[in-house]
Design a protein around this nucleic acid. Structure first.
Lengths: 147, 147
DNA sequence: GGCAAATAGGATATAATTTATCCTTTTATG
DNA sequence: CATAAAAGGATAAATTATATCCTATTTGCC
């Protein structure tokens, strides 16, 4: 019932990229430093994000990583599923027929509902939303306590 | 991001008990049979549920298990947390200060929200709700397709 | 009392998954 | 051609989840 480290790292890494000046690339090692993520592990995560089209990567001396598409077209769900595969909150939701009780199990219905709400939330939150919010938080860390 | 087997078993076992005649006890081994749960593993789960007060257990020849309180006073959240401990959907929510970015991390806010919705859903669904629904499903398995 | 059937609980095994690193290769730049 | 970056395969290390075994305790019944 807990997000994997990989998923958490992926979100933070994407947010890191999204909040840098868009015209300059950054480099995986620097993201790792800033976000306190094991560097070699992050290269794997970046690779998954790249394969999903969420990051674009460039090899070589002047290489690095940049967003693969506009931040408002990247959902949190996409990020997490890129590194962890499809989310399901119970085994019986992996695919229809996984559990032979589907039709008569009231718990099954509950999992369907809970999963729907969770995925909905993550699908409707974009990286752009988070980046915007990051800026607010940085400019007014004490928001709510202003004189 | 997935419910443990233990949690799933716990919910199904509680539902099993709740849908039996209230005046007669059942026995762990039979629950395991009906619900297709590894019997010895289930004894551990029953033990946790008992310690949480959700089941009452009786030793000896005529022993068995029964609900520890009325089904409408048992939430799905209670059941799951009884066997899996407190739910948190990301490490940074284990306790305040777990992550030193709390104050400035926009992702943190998202996790708080997502967790709130998930826990709310589970806290508001009672075992009685599930039991009622179980009865409906059994009486009219093709509900929606009736002539 | 003694047997049988049930839960209680500690210890431990087994398996699966997650997290992380290492090493080599490929690509690009200056 | 040296350097800096990502790509990817193999593998190690750690953690967690799942499950079983064994012994003890409780209870009912003959």
């Amino acid at each position: 019932m807990e997000l994997s480290r990989r998923g958490d790292y992926a979100v933070r890494a994407m947010l890191d990229v999204a909040t840098r000046p868009a015209d300059r690339m950054t480099v995986t090692k620097e993201i790792a430093l800033r976000q306190d993520i094991p560097p070699i592990f992050l290269t794997k995560i970046v690779s998954s994000l790249s394969q999903a089209g969420l990051l674009r990567t460039y090899r070589g001396v002047a290489g690095g990583v940049a967003l693969g598409k506009p931040a408002d077209q990247i959902s949190l769900l996409q990020i997490i599923e890129a590194v962890d595969g499809p989310i399901y909150i119970n085994r019986c939701l992996i695919r229809r027929g996984e559990c032979d009780r589907d039709r008569t199990c009231p718990a099954h219905e509950l999992w369907v509902q809970a999963q729907g709400e969770l995925l909905g939330l993550l699908a409707n939150k974009s990286l752009a939303d988070l980046a915007r919010r990051a800026q607010e938080l940085q400019q007014a860390p004490m928001a709510g306590f202003a004189a």
